[in-house]
Amino acid sequence: MTRTRLLTLTPFVILALLVWLVSVPVSNRPVTHNIVMTADQFAFDPPVLRVNQGDTVRLTLQAADVVHGFYLDGYGLNTRIEPGVSRQIEFTADRAGKFRYRCSVSCGSLHPFMIGELVVNPNFPFYRAVGITLITVIAVLVYLRKFPPAPV
């Protein structure tokens, strides 16, 4: 009796172990992004940055007209950018999620709308966790189907 029960669960356990241990495809290894970010009245270019968690982001900040600032929510980075003088900042995107970057120097009428977005995609362990959770759910469903609990 317990044997068949265990047998039912075995394929799921193997699957879960596979998902947990299978080697990481190369494309998901942390990389360094070299990005030139230009600030002008009243936008950042590029307006959206997408990276994977763990990646290194090396930004070259430039101001194309007047002094702007670059403040990155969540990472607490803040710099002034003088026109004509490029400025380098580097950080590791170690927190997943969406973070706003905004201008931190009042640069004109639409300054409050000078906003961009950094999207840090969760890295591989996140997908593994999702996979394992799904497998567990299916395993529990199958198990309950086969061996419904005795009515109390």
Partner: peptide
């Protein structure tokens, strides 16, 4: 000066 003359002295700053 860099805003006009450029930080690399190329004369092509944003100004």
């Amino acid at each position: 000066c860099a805003a006009c003359h450029g930080e690399d002295g190329s004369g092509t700053g944003p100004g």
